[in-house]
């Protein structure tokens, strides 16, 4: 009986607390997101006009996707990487300084999650993954764009960002979302266990043990070759010239 009462009291306290988060989130949504994503996350459709932060007064069509059903996962990813709020619509979202504070992000994530049924924020366990599996999976699925130690790269129409600042959760989220022009991977393509391995590899790749010493940005054979040619070859030629100098007749 006592326990029941305790649970009831806790529930009474918890519900308004959760609500408070959602209400605050709704306010923030009105402030930062509604211009592009539309009222109640319905998406802003063609013909509607939008004036949002950082944008000029021109009318833009189809500004942002609807957010119903994207779940806490997408909101958490876009807000905690600083991808959103977007400074200028129509540009690729890039990692940037966070505009919102931690509690504000929590509230906004709660609000977006309340808009419809969607995936929760994943909790990857890199310690359960295997580094070698992770390397193999990363090479197969990710390295084509993100480079083999996740230094990032360019492709036609977009930038594959470096993953130096990506947290474990963000990596797991991005795999499921496929932000911007990245393909997305379902649990059938990459199981949670495989994601654990990939996360473990990406975390390792932030500070790979450079057996050779000087990493030269981990960019691979081209800069390494340049260093060899411009530094080592110059030194060797200089030494050869010195050696070949004859003693002058006195």
């Amino acid at each position: 009986m006592r326990r029941l009462v305790l649970i009831a009291v806790l529930a009474l306290v918890a519900v308004p607390l959760g609500r408070a988060g959602v209400t605050q989130g709704k306010q923030l949504y009105g402030e930062y997101c509604v211009a592009c994503h539309g009222a109640n996350g319905m998406g802003a459709n063609g013909g509607e006009t939008g004036f949002g932060p950082g944008r000029s007064e021109r009318v833009q069509e189809r500004l942002g996707p609807p957010l119903r059903g994207v779940g806490a996962l997408a909101a958490d990813f876009y807000l905690r990487t600083g991808y959103m709020p977007l400074r200028e619509s129509g540009k690729q979202p890039r990692r940037s300084r966070l505009l919102l504070s931690e509690p504000q992000i929590d509230a906004l994530v709660a609000y977006v999650a309340s808009l419809g049924q969607g995936p929760k924020v994943p909790t990857p366990r890199p310690e359960r993954g295997s580094l070698s599996d992770g390397q193999r999976l990363f090479t197969d699925h990710c390295a084509g764009c993100h480079q083999v130690v996740a230094e990032g790269g360019y492709l036609s129409g977009g930038v594959a960002p470096p993953l130096e600042e990506a947290t474990s959760t963000q990596i797991a989220e991005a795999i499921r979302i496929g932000p911007y022009i990245m393909p997305r991977f379902s649990t059938r393509d990459l199981s949670p266990q495989e994601v654990n391995s990939i996360v473990r590899y990406v975390q390792w790749a932030k500070h790979p043990d450079d057996r050779g010493g000087w990493a030269i940005g981990h960019l691979g054979p081209v800069p390494e070759g340049l260093v060899t040619w411009f530094l080592a070859a110059t030194t060797l030629v200089a030494v050869c010239i010195l050696l070949g100098k004859r003693l002058r007749h006195e």
Binding site: E61, R62, L63, G64, P65, S89, G90, K91, Q92, G144, C145, L155, S156, G157, G158, I177, G178, P179, Y180, I181, M182, P183, R184
Partner: peptide, 26 residues
């Protein structure tokens, strides 16, 4: 062809494309 450009939100993102990683033929 190992890269697939899969736009999340098409009106603003570039179109879907199959990309070759060797010389970026798209």
């Amino acid at each position: 062809i190992a890269l697939y450009r899969a736009p999340l939100f098409e009106p603003t993102d570039p179109k879907p494309a199959l990309v070759c990683p060797c010389h970026y033929s798209t």
